[in-house]
């Protein structure tokens, strides 16, 4: 994997997908993947293969819903959109994540603390 791109970890991928759907509205799988890469400033490489099991899991958990639609280029594609439970989950997860990063930040730069 050249270009200094990092792989996305499984746990965070779900949150990124949810957040993307919240920001952009209903999207198809390919679009979500591209959007995540763009948002990361091309610093992340989404292995598209891992995206579909993750989407399936979110759908089983009831955070997203899918239906067939037509893409911008007139191609048939499956569109995912956030459910109400999904919106709540984004808020919850985001808060958790902020907490975690804040704590980690204290460890990584302790001199700022005092």
């Amino acid at each position: 994997m050249g270009g200094g791109k990092s792989d996305v970890w499984q746990g965070t991928l779900a949150l990124m997908v949810l957040k993307t759907l919240q920001a952009m509205g209903p999207m198809h799988g390919y679009g979500i993947a591209r959007r995540i890469e763009q948002t990361s400033g091309d610093r992340l490489a989404v292995n598209y293969g891992t995206l579909y099991p993750a989407l399936l899991k979110l759908e089983q958990e009831g955070y997203v819903q899918s239906e067939w639609g037509v893409s911008d280029n007139n191609r048939k594609a499956k569109f995912y959109r956030l459910t109400r439970a999904g919106r709540k989950q984004v808020t919850r997860e985001a808060r958790e994540w902020e907490k975690t990063t804040a704590i980690l930040a204290r460890f990584l730069s302790p001199e700022r603390q005092s």
Binding site: H28, G29, Y30, R34, N73, R75, K76, A77, K78
Partner: peptide
Amino acid sequence: DELAAELESHLQMHIED
């Protein structure tokens, strides 16, 4: 079948890009 169709459309979009 559905999954195959979804992946196929993903592939086509990617190729077009």
